[in-house]
Design a protein around this nucleic acid. Structure first.
Lengths: 214, 214
DNA sequence: TCTTGCGTGTTACTAGCGGTAACTCCAGTG
DNA sequence: CACTGGAGTTACCGCTAGTAACACGCAAGA
């Protein structure tokens, strides 16, 4: 029951845990989102049960793995959002940061976005969004907070900021996912187009002359 | 090999197929996205192998099921987009149509969005977006087409329209998913907030006085 | 009428998954 | 020395997607 001893054990356990997470990272990077617990255990040089002792179940491992990347990504995004520049530049920097991240490690982010959430022995029904993609939610909430803190939106601004936070994150995610699959343009062009959208160019554009009907 | 005979058989097969799809619909509506092939077969009053004879594998059944709802939803969206009203009203009507649909049948749309895509014996690697959520993609492409047809965006307008199509659909989807989970406001308020975002209110809003630093 | 197909359906199985129970092994302590 | 507790193993359970092989019914051809 000595404190130093307990600390020693905990340090060892933490180191193991980090090793396991790194092994899981490698497997996910290689096999994609359908990485199995067996494969991860094998990569770590051990067997399944100790993986389960460390992380509880697959969603626990997923959560731990997700937290690492989510934290790292959110830090980058915060840095971009906090840069000393005007709003447009900050928005573009944030979009570019996210897109650069998913471009650099597509499988990791696909794993984070589509955890396959196979929890067979659990609740079911109308709990839509309960176990939903935490990365997108966290990004949405953080962005909402930034928007609410920085912008003067008048009454109802808090709710507006949350809607916008989740909406913008979803826009970024979907456009990024599509862009990653088809690569129809450069990252910079994508960033500019999305920022233009947020800047109201859709509403400002003129109707096409000779259009269909009206 | 008579033609009428073949037609008779095909009609019967088509009717069976429709029955099976309706049974699958019921199960998905009841059990959520993790509906098993066994459960679907049982609901239809048959057993698994004939399900597999009709649809190949689970993704085949998913694709057939998805197509029905996707087509229905896209028709509603097209109607909203084609309504004789100004642009803002059309955008709001489209958003509202989508949100009303996911509000009416949350499980169905969760099934469509998160098909769990467990294709273990297949390709893997960098094919991000290859088997990706077809509903979102189709909506994005359709919206892109409408934008490109109706708006005068100058040179590079086609690419811009596609980016915007996928981006707006993603915004709609993410915001809707979050809203379904938390229900922080009415549907009408959500629609208004999202339309405001597209109308550039984010860019136009003033900085908060007394903000953090600058 | 008997037989030959063919489509429809079944039972019974494989392989692999997430997850667990129960056992072994080894370090440190009295 | 005996003992206790954590690390790790084998061997299993129940479930899934998917399949092989067999049985029934019903039309056409001799």
């Amino acid at each position: 029951m000595d404190t130093t001893q307990r600390t020693e054990q905990q340090r060892s356990a933490d180191r193991r845990r980090r090793e396991l997470l790194e092994a899981a990272d490698r497997v996910v990077l290689r096999d994609g989102p359908q990485a199995s617990m067996n494969a991860i255990a094998a990569e770590a040089g051990i067997t399944k049960p100790i993986l389960y002792r460390h992380f509880g179940d697959k969603s626990g491992l997923y959560a731990a793995l997700a937290q690492r990347h989510t934290d790292a990504l959110l830090n980058s995004l915060r840095a971009a959002l906090d840069a000393p520049a005007d709003r447009r530049e900050r928005v573009e920097a944030t979009l570019d940061t996210y897109l650069a991240a998913i471009e650099a490690r597509p499988q990791v982010y696909r794993f984070l976005m589509h955890p396959a959430e196979g929890s067979p022995g659990g609740e079911q029904g109308f709990d839509v969004g309960k176990h939903a993609i935490p990365l997108l939610r966290r990004m949405g909430e953080e962005l909402a907070q930034v928007i609410e803190d920085r912008l003067d939106l008048g009454p109802g601004g808090q709710q507006l900021a949350r809607v916008w936070g989740h909406g913008i994150v979803g826009m970024m995610h979907a456009a990024g996912d599509w862009w990653l699959g088809e690569r129809p343009c450069s990252r910079a062009e994508l960033v500019r187009s999305l920022a233009d959208l947020l800047w109201g160019r859709l509403a400002a554009a003129g109707d096409k002359v000779g259009g269909p009907g009206f």
